[in-house]
Amino acid sequence: MQPDLSAKSLKVTSLISVGQHPKSGRARRAEQDARAVELGLTLSDDQLEMLHVGSGDKTVMRSYLGMGLPKMTLLKQGDRGDAVPVLCDYLATHAPDILLTGVRAESGEASGMLPFLLAEKLGWPLVSRIAEIGEVNDGVAEVLQALPRGQRRAIKVRLPFVASVDNAAAEPRQSAFGPGQRAGINDMPVAGGDDVVRSGWEESPARKKPKRLKVVKAKTAADRFKAATAKASGGGGKVLKKESPAEQAQAVLDLLIEEGVVR
């Protein structure tokens, strides 16, 4: 779906955050936010505003800017600040037609609440987990929402709206070092309260979640029987060598059915 020309005059704001690499924990361009910027760029390359609230890690901000925007807005706030009131204030005066966010942050609480809070406070509709924005006509946008298994749902939503961008959206373009280094960061200090609730929390490195044991309780004879005969999970895979092709195919099919991919 190609956005039509009228879409080009849309005002789009993409919110960006400081992401985190899942393996190294190093700060980086967040995957979903980068997709939100990518989507914004395809919708309106000259009217896209990139907005961040926080301390504005320089390398991360520059890696977003390397996607080709000449500048961005940084609402400068301490690390413990609450971004929502600050954003609401800002967006009330700089209202875009479309506000794009990620689904969940990559660090900290990662509650996924931010788009919902903004939509609620601004009184705008919100569409979650979108993959694409198509045509925008007469103040109504056609949006494709990502569903599990690569499926999609078509949705129409009235402008202005908030949308959270799913991992199924188009991959973000590569960040180029040179332009990222030269782009401008308009920083505006803002007065926002600290996130007081959070200060009472305790953070620790993630613990391994215990695997649920398959325990058998007295229920039905069949259940016990099944448990007693089940192949212990783990260990090497099963290899069927001598069976006939039909039997082998049946074994494969049984696994596919058990896994729920063939219905």
Partner: peptide
């Protein structure tokens, strides 16, 4: 569970 499955928050 916090962001990127890297932290646990107790609250």
């Amino acid at each position: 569970r916090g962001g990127s499955q890297r932290i646990d928050i107790s609250r």
